[in-house]
C-alpha cells in the first residue's frame, strides 16, 4: 500500500507520534492513508488506541530497518 502521506517521527518519544498524527489528520482527505514512522515502543499500542478513540481506521504496521511504519486511513 502506498501511503498518501508519510510522517517521520523517528527518535521522538511518546506521545509525540500520536500528537503529530492528530495534527496531520485535518490536512488529509477522507480515505487517504497516512504512514507514521516511529521507533518509540509505545507507538505500536497508542496509534491503534488513538484510532479507536477518534473513529479512524487502523490498518496495521509494517516492520522497517529502524522502528516500524504504522498505517492509518482517515475515515471522517
Amino acid at each position: 500500500m502506498t501511503p498518501d502521506r508519510v510522517l517521520d517521527c523517528l527518535g521522538r518519544p511518546c506521545p509525540v507520534p500520536v500528537i503529530e498524527l492528530a495534527k496531520a489528520l485535518p490536512s488529509l482527505g477522507v480515505g487517504d492513508v497516512i504512514e507514521v514512522l516511529s521507533d518509540d515502543p509505545a507507538a505500536r499500542h497508542d496509534i491503534p488506541a488513538w484510532c479507536r478513540m477518534r473513529g479512524q481506521e487502523w490498518l496495521g504496521e509494517q516492520a522497517r530497518p529502524v522502528g516500524a511504519a504504522y498505517l492509518v486511513r482517515r475515515t471522517g
Binding site: C14, P15, H45, D46, A49, W50, R52, M53
Partner: peptide, 8 residues
Amino acid sequence: VAMGVLTH
C-alpha cells in the same frame, strides 16, 4: 498493552 488501551 494487553488491554489495548492508551498507554501514554
